[in-house]
Amino acid sequence: MKRFFAWLLLVLFLFSAPSISASKNLILATTTSTVDSGLLDVLIPLFEKQSGYKVKTIGVGSGMAMEMGKRGEADVLLVHSPKDEEKLVAEGFGINRKPVMHNDFVLLGPPNDPAGVGSFKSAKAAFGKIASSGVLFVSRGDKSGTHKKELSIWPAGTVLSNLWYLESGQGMGTTLMIASQKRAYTLSDRATYLSFKDKVRLVILSEGDKVLLNPYHVIEVNPAKFSKVNAEGGKAFSGFIVSASTQKVIAEFGKEKFGGVLFFPDAK
């Protein structure tokens, strides 16, 4: 009898996972940078408390996040890959694209700067110098926003030969580790770099160029295309993240932990 109750308890424990009413579920597809930086750990609980929705945050590359939007597998997107976003909206998969915030990218490299790019103001020129010198460069290679940005910076006609151009196929953090270990150059968003600064031997060699800006937009997935999309939830999240009080939270985020602002609010 005792044994029976022990088994019963075990089965109850295993299958008692709380169920949540489906229509209150909201799938947010976003980039690894917003998850890894911890920003969403602050914003999501605020939104859930205000709206009553239960958010399922899926942190993937911008490429995959956009694909989920295209297939109606997410309700709302928070991404940073402007050209693809415009295409997504033009094709009718996304609606109400609004600017949320931005941070910027920085070109990182070994402290001794073997390719000598530190003196260039233009990011394009710095990239060109890396390509011509043949020093290792580690690319994300995962169609993420960072990868797309990097591809757009190489001067026209640059051959990305695998003699010096390595594709990690992984997230920003792992890519920084690889670049550090291989004494290579890489492009990173500032937020991830700041949180890794103590762990990698990489320094900022080029920053501030306009092409290095990294804007994030919120996009609702078009409910006219996919009947299962939670349109109201998507709208609620979109409204929440551009609201004045949320924008203030974004502006304050990271001051304590990193000693610097990670994201600059952009919503009007």
Binding site: G173, L176, K199
Partner: peptide, 9 residues
């Protein structure tokens, strides 16, 4: 995996 990605070794 997530913590290793974040660098929290």
């Amino acid at each position: 995996v997530l913590e290793a990605q974040k660098g929290n070794i």
